[in-house]
Simulated assay, not measured.
Amino acid sequence: MAKKKQLKVTQIGSPIGRPKDQRATLVGLGLNKMHRSRVLEDTPSVRGMCAKIHHLVKVEEVSA
Results as ranks from 00 to 15, higher is better:
H35P: 05
E60I: 04
I12C: 02
T43G: 04
L31D: 13
P15L: 02
I12K: 00
Q22F: 02
D42F: 10
Q6D: 02
G13Q: 01
K5D: 10
D21W: 04
K5M: 05
T25H: 03
N32I: 13
D21K: 10
G13I: 02
K3M: 09
K33V: 15
D42H: 07
Q6N: 06
R18E: 03
K33D: 09
Q11N: 02
S63E: 15
D21S: 01
K58C: 02
V46H: 07
K58W: 05
H55E: 07
V57F: 02
M1H: 02
R23N: 11
L31N: 09
T43N: 04
R23C: 09
N32S: 15
C50G: 07
H35R: 11
E60P: 07
R47P: 06
L40H: 12
E61V: 12
K52S: 13
R23K: 12
E60C: 08
V46C: 04
H54Q: 10
A24D: 14
K3E: 11
G17L: 01
V39Q: 12
Q22L: 05
H54E: 11
G30S: 10
S45I: 11
K5E: 04
G28C: 14
T10G: 06
T10C: 04
L7Q: 07
H35K: 14
T25F: 10
C50R: 06
I53W: 03
I12H: 01
L31I: 12
T10P: 11
I16K: 00
H35L: 15
N32Q: 13
T10S: 08
K33G: 11
G28A: 14
L29R: 12
G13Y: 00
G28T: 12
L29W: 10
E41G: 06
Q6M: 07
A2E: 04
Q6C: 06
N32W: 11
Q22M: 08
L40V: 15
T10R: 06
K4Y: 09
M1I: 04
L7C: 06
S45C: 07
K52G: 03
K5N: 09
K52Y: 09
K20A: 01
K4E: 09
V9D: 08
G17T: 00
V46G: 02
S14M: 04
A2V: 01
G30Q: 08
V59W: 06
D42C: 09
P15M: 01
G13S: 00
K8P: 09
L29E: 13
P19I: 01
V59N: 05
L56V: 04
N32K: 14
K5G: 01
N32M: 13
L26Y: 12
K4S: 03
H35Q: 11
Q11V: 04
H55R: 04
M34N: 09
L7E: 05
V57E: 05
N32L: 10
Q6E: 12
S37V: 11
A64E: 15
V59M: 05
T43E: 05
L31G: 13
K3Q: 08
V27Q: 12
G28P: 15
Q6H: 08
T43P: 05
N32H: 14
V46P: 09
M1N: 04
T25I: 15
G17H: 00
R36Y: 12
H54T: 05
